[in-house]
Simulated scan of single mutants.
Amino acid sequence: MDPKALKKLVESISNTVKSFKKSEVECLIRLFHKLVGRADVRLDNVGLDRNAFRGILYSIFGMTDDVLMNRVFFAFDKDNDNCINVKEWVKGLSVFLRGTFEERLKFCFEVYYLNGDGYISREEIFDMLKNSLHQPSSEEETDEGIKELVDITLKKMDYDNDGKISFADFEKAVKEERLLLEVFGPCLPEAKNCLDFEALAFRHILTSRF
C-alpha cells in the first residue's frame, strides 16, 4: 500500500467526514483494503460488491434480513454503481457508528424508499412490513393484516394525506416518537455491534496508547 496515496486519501476523506479522527479514517481505509483483498489495485479504484458487503453486515453487524441488507447496500452506494468504494465505506460507517440523530434519520429514510422518487409508497410499506412479519397464518390472512397495519402507519405518519410518506412526514413522525426510526425494519446496527466493530477496526490505535 503506497504511503503517499494512503496519506492523500486519508486527507481527502477526513475533510468530508468529521466523526472520525484521521488515525481512525486510516484504520478504516486499511480494513477496507483488507476486506477487498486486492493489494495490486489503486486504493481509490476498488470496491465491495453487494455479496461482500452483505457478508460484512451479517458477520460484523449481526444483520440477517436479506431485503434490509440489500437496502442498506444501496444506501451506502451513493453513486449507484453497484459497488461500495472506499469513500462510501467510510462515510457510511460514520453514520452507522457515530451518526447524529439527523444523519440516522436520513439514512433510515433512504433505506426505506427504493424507487428513487423520495417517497415511501403504500406498496413499499406493505412489502417491508410483510418481509418483517413472519406469521404462521395463511398468506391471505397475513396480507389482510398487513394492509390494516399499512393504513394505521399512513394515518400516523402521512401528515399531508397524499397516500405516501415524504421525508418531511418521516422526520416529523420520528421526532415525535423516536421508536418509529426503524419502523419498517432494523437497518442500523445495535450499539454492541458498533463497539465490537470499533474495537476490531481501531485496535492498533487503542494498543498504541498503552
Results as ranks from 00 to 15, higher is better:
residue 29 I to N: 05
residue 30 R to F: 03
residue 32 F to I: 13
residue 33 H to L: 05
residue 34 K to R: 12
residue 35 L to A: 06
residue 35 L to Y: 06
residue 36 V to N: 06
residue 36 V to C: 10
residue 37 G to D: 05
residue 37 G to E: 06
residue 38 R to F: 08
residue 39 A to W: 09
residue 40 D to M: 07
residue 40 D to E: 14
residue 40 D to R: 13
residue 41 V to Y: 12
residue 41 V to F: 11
residue 42 R to I: 05
residue 43 L to N: 07
residue 45 N to E: 15
residue 46 V to M: 15
residue 47 G to W: 07
residue 47 G to L: 06
residue 48 L to A: 05
residue 48 L to M: 08
residue 49 D to P: 01
residue 50 R to I: 12
residue 50 R to S: 06
residue 52 A to W: 00
residue 53 F to Q: 06
residue 55 G to I: 02
residue 57 L to S: 04
residue 57 L to K: 05
residue 59 S to F: 04
residue 60 I to V: 14
residue 60 I to T: 10
residue 61 F to P: 05
residue 62 G to D: 05
residue 62 G to P: 03
residue 63 M to K: 06
residue 63 M to G: 02
residue 65 D to W: 02
residue 65 D to H: 11
residue 66 D to F: 08
residue 66 D to V: 04
residue 66 D to I: 04
residue 67 V to G: 06
residue 69 M to H: 02
residue 70 N to G: 15
residue 71 R to G: 04
residue 72 V to H: 04
residue 73 F to A: 10
residue 74 F to E: 11
residue 74 F to K: 15
residue 74 F to A: 11
residue 75 A to R: 04
residue 76 F to N: 06
residue 77 D to C: 14
residue 79 D to Q: 10
residue 79 D to K: 14
residue 82 N to L: 10
residue 83 C to S: 15
residue 83 C to G: 08
residue 83 C to R: 15
residue 83 C to H: 08
residue 83 C to N: 14
residue 84 I to Q: 13
residue 84 I to N: 13
residue 85 N to Y: 11
residue 85 N to E: 12
residue 87 K to A: 11
residue 87 K to W: 05
residue 88 E to K: 13
residue 88 E to L: 11
residue 89 W to H: 12
residue 90 V to G: 07
residue 91 K to T: 10
residue 93 L to I: 02
residue 94 S to D: 00
residue 95 V to T: 03
residue 96 F to E: 00
residue 97 L to F: 00
residue 97 L to D: 00
residue 99 G to I: 00
residue 100 T to S: 14
residue 100 T to G: 01
residue 101 F to N: 00
residue 102 E to W: 01
residue 102 E to L: 02
residue 102 E to D: 13
residue 103 E to P: 02
residue 105 L to W: 00
residue 106 K to R: 10
residue 109 F to A: 01
residue 109 F to E: 01
residue 109 F to W: 01
residue 112 Y to M: 01
residue 112 Y to F: 15
residue 112 Y to D: 01
residue 113 Y to E: 15
residue 113 Y to D: 13
residue 113 Y to M: 08
residue 114 L to Q: 14
residue 114 L to A: 13
residue 116 G to Y: 03
residue 117 D to N: 14
residue 117 D to P: 07
residue 119 Y to K: 14
residue 119 Y to D: 09
residue 120 I to M: 09
residue 120 I to K: 07
residue 121 S to R: 13
residue 121 S to F: 09
residue 123 E to M: 09
residue 124 E to I: 10
residue 125 I to E: 08
residue 126 F to S: 10
residue 128 M to A: 10
residue 128 M to R: 12
residue 128 M to D: 05
residue 129 L to T: 04
residue 131 N to H: 05
residue 131 N to Y: 04
residue 132 S to L: 03
residue 132 S to A: 09
residue 134 H to S: 11
residue 135 Q to R: 12
residue 136 P to A: 08
residue 137 S to M: 09
residue 137 S to D: 04
residue 137 S to H: 03
residue 140 E to N: 09
residue 140 E to G: 04
residue 140 E to K: 15
residue 141 E to T: 08
residue 141 E to Q: 08
residue 141 E to M: 03
residue 142 T to V: 12
residue 144 E to R: 05
residue 144 E to C: 01
residue 144 E to F: 02
residue 145 G to E: 05
residue 146 I to C: 01
residue 147 K to F: 02
residue 150 V to R: 05
residue 151 D to L: 07
residue 152 I to S: 10
residue 153 T to W: 00
residue 153 T to K: 01
residue 154 L to M: 09
residue 158 D to Q: 14
residue 158 D to T: 13
residue 158 D to R: 15
